[in-house]
Structure formats: C-alpha cells, structure tokens
Simulated scan of single mutants.
Amino acid sequence: MSLREDLNVRIKESMLAKNKERTSALRLLLSEIKKVEVDQRITLDDSQIIAIVTKMVKQREESAAQYEAAGREELAQGEKFEISVLQEFLPAQMSEAEVDELIAKALSETGASGMKDMSKVMSFVKPLATGRTDMGSLSKKIKDALNK
C-alpha cells in the first residue's frame, strides 16, 4: 500500500472514530501533498511524500520550540500532537551506529578523500537516509569524517 493510500485509510478511520484533532492533522498532510501535486502537475511517489512529511515535522518542531519559549504551552502541545501523527508516515529512524555505518560505507564506496568529495558522499547517502535521520546532523558527521 502506498503512503497516499495509507493516508486516505487513516483519515477515514479517524473520521469514523470522531477524533477531530487527528483528522485535522491528517487532512493537513493530505492538503500539502495535493498542493505540491497541483503546483508541479505531478503525482508524488512515496519518497516525495516522505520529504513533505519530514519538512512538516521540522516546521512543527520549530513552532513548538517558539511557543514554549513564549510560554504558550497549549499551542506547543498542539504542535507536538501533529508531530506525533505525522511521524507515523516516516520510516523507522536510524540509530547512531547505523548512521556511522552508512557514512563509512559511503566513504569507502565513493573513494572520498577530502571535502572536495562531499557531494559524492551526500549523493550516495541521501537516498538511503532521507526521512530516516536529520540530514543536517548527517551532513555535519560526513564533514567531520572527511576532515579527519
């Protein structure tokens, strides 16, 4: 079952359960997917949907942090709930050991020897890690490995 089909099933289940907050969060995701599809005139595949979900999770994490800094705990809780719903559509997160193993494999297979090979390593790692780990921290770890 594709992520799009899974999303539609979960929306229906949530509506039948009369869970308004969950239904709202799922509809937000569906509307973002449809927006991208209409704007770009394409049908998104699972990897593109994962990229959208990752982006939405990151936006909500930033919003929750800002709400907490401003003392608006009820708004931060709403954002955290949406994060929990969105994360259901992301693949299992990679452990630190898996990330380190992936970086080591990428370095050996691409023959990377310095910062000039950063793009080679990232192009090898990105399809395997998108949605499964924070790409910013992954990039930092790769830079550290290439600078050794």
Rank of each mutant, 00 (worst) to 15 (best):
P127M: 11
K140Y: 11
K143V: 07
L138I: 04
T133W: 07
A145S: 07
K126M: 12
S137Q: 14
D134Q: 06
V121P: 01
L146R: 00
I142G: 02
F124A: 09
D134L: 06
M118T: 11
N147Y: 05
T133N: 04
V125H: 01
G131W: 06
K126H: 10
F124L: 11
T130L: 15
K126D: 10
A129M: 12
K126V: 06
L128G: 05
L128A: 12
A129L: 07
S139Y: 13
A145Y: 00
G136W: 09
L146N: 01
D144N: 11
S137N: 12
L138A: 02
I142Q: 06
K141P: 01
V125C: 05
M135T: 00
K140F: 09
M122Q: 04
T133Y: 10
M135H: 02
G131N: 08
L138M: 07
L138N: 03
M135E: 04
D134T: 01
S139K: 14
G136S: 13
M118R: 13
L146H: 00
G136N: 12
S139I: 03
V125E: 03
K141D: 07
M135A: 02
M122S: 03
A129V: 09
N147V: 08
K126F: 07
K143F: 05
S139A: 14
L146A: 00
K143S: 10
A145N: 02
K141I: 03
K120A: 14
S123V: 11
G131P: 04
M118C: 07
S139V: 04
D144E: 14
K143L: 10
N147M: 15
S119Q: 15
K126C: 06
K120P: 04
S139D: 11
A129E: 07
N147A: 14
K143R: 15
L128S: 10
N147C: 05
M135Y: 00
R132M: 05
S137F: 11
K140N: 12
G131L: 08
D134N: 11
A129F: 08
R132Y: 02
S137D: 15
L138F: 00
N147L: 14
L146F: 01
R132V: 02
V125A: 09
S139G: 09
S139H: 12
K126L: 12
M122R: 07
N147R: 12
G131I: 05
S123Y: 11
V121Y: 05
A145T: 00
D134G: 05
V121Q: 05
K143E: 10
V121M: 06
A145Q: 04
D144R: 07
T130Q: 15
T130S: 15
V121H: 04
K126N: 09
F124H: 10
S119L: 15
A129Y: 04
D144K: 10
K120W: 13
G136Q: 13
N147K: 15
V125F: 03
K141V: 01
S119Y: 12
S137I: 10
L128V: 09
M122D: 01
G131S: 09
T133V: 12
G136A: 13
M118S: 08
A145G: 02
S139L: 12
I142A: 03
M122I: 08
T133I: 10
L146C: 02
N147P: 00
G136L: 12
L138C: 03
M122Y: 03
S139F: 14
T130H: 12
S123F: 11
K141S: 08
M118P: 04
A145V: 00
M118F: 15
R132P: 02
G136K: 11
A145H: 00
V125S: 03
A129W: 04
M135L: 09
D144F: 08
